[in-house]
Design a protein around this nucleic acid. Structure first.
Lengths: 208, 208
DNA sequence: GTCTATATCGCGATAGAC
DNA sequence: GTCTATCGCGATATAGAC
């Protein structure tokens, strides 16, 4: 990892790239561990081991375990924004909503959807003070909220259910335990699981 | 639950009652703390403080923190069995299912539904070795599963969705984050929240 | 900025008197 | 069986050399 070439002009940018790459590696490791074990069971030692650096080095990049978790949440928000931006803007609103729900379920089944304990108050306070996280979440919520209202207006979503309830219900698919149970059962492929859970979410359990 | 009390020495029975009452108080405290903070954030010191005894005394009743959690789970399984037994056996199967879902949501909104982290493997292994828990869970699952199949047969539940998926979906209402979010929003009463979540569960988000 | 080594401490569990 | 006092361990975070 040590660089011998001392050429001044390129070195700064290169070092900055290395720094960014390392921080990305850290956040990706945190993301995976958060999805696998959750915040409380994830240890900073594990993160350092997975990245391949010393724990003290890790603290040079992020000043606390909570900052690590926040960075992972900011990253996944960014991934969600990228996905939303990749959607065909001309599709039906309800199909946009199904696409984002499908994306969240896929991330979860791949073991790449970090989830924080909703009970930890200090952790939540930390996140609520993170501007990048809040701004990203707001932008996503606005976009999804717009689709929800459009889908209610065009008669594809039930107009009697408050839009906020629908937004929360969609978000809850990110930590829905049903996909994991079905995957553990081994009776269905990931695609089948996603289709089933999407069906129960939008169409309900009762017969139509 | 069975109590005959025919034995002459009343003193022993009384002491046993005191013992039982204290253990009940412990388990109820654990149940509340598990619902409020979750397993990882709940400390044994808190339990002892809430019960009003020393921590060492607590360990005379339960040999580990995991045993405490298991006892709370066994208790809530028993409460669920009592509720199921109180239902009118002649009601329509789908109404039985809605009643149990409603009961789980109510327990959760009251802050009395303990939920364990599904990631903690040693905790799960401990529970899977607990006969009282497994037997109770199996009995409940059999009863609910019977109603699901009956409701599919009488045309009130979608027969295309596997019964096991429906069972998991109902169980997942015990840890659904949506009721808590709605309660925190302060825009709805508990009854309204339950009605809304039940509606999205059985009827889905899409218009009918 | 990276490392090794260590400080600090919260928490599960136990010892031992009564 | 209850208590006070303590152990032991693991985890977050830091010190200080390079």
């Amino acid at each position: 990892m040590t660089q011998l070439n001392p050429s001044p002009p390129v070195k700064i940018s290169f070092k900055a790239q290395m720094l960014q790459a390392r921080e990305d590696a850290i956040v990706i490791a945190v993301n995976r561990l958060l999805a696998e074990k959750g915040f409380d069971l994830m240890t900073v030692d594990e993160v350092a081991l997975e990245v391949g650096i010393a724990k003290a080095s890790l603290y040079k990049h992020f000043s606390s375990k909570e900052d690590l978790a926040a960075a992972a949440m900011v990253r996944v928000i960014g991934l969600a924004q990228d996905f939303l931006a990749s959607l065909n803007a001309k599709a039906r609103p309800i199909d946009q909503l199904k696409a984002i729900a499908r994306w969240m379920l896929l991330q979860q089944l791949k073991g790449e959807m970090p989830s924080l304990p909703s009970q930890n108050s200090t952790l939540r306070a930390n996140l609520m003070g993170n501007k990048a996280y809040l701004d990203g979440l707001m932008q996503i919520s606005d976009q999804i909220g717009g689709w929800i209202e459009a889908a209610q207006a065009d008669g594809s979503l039930d107009a009697n259910v408050p839009a906020l309830v629908m937004l929360y219900t969609l978000y809850s698919k990110a930590c829905d335990p049903v996909p994991g149970f079905l995957k553990a059962g081994g009776q269905h492929t990931d695609d089948e699981i996603i289709a089933i859970v999407l069906g129960t979410c939008f169409d309900g359990l009762a017969v139509r």
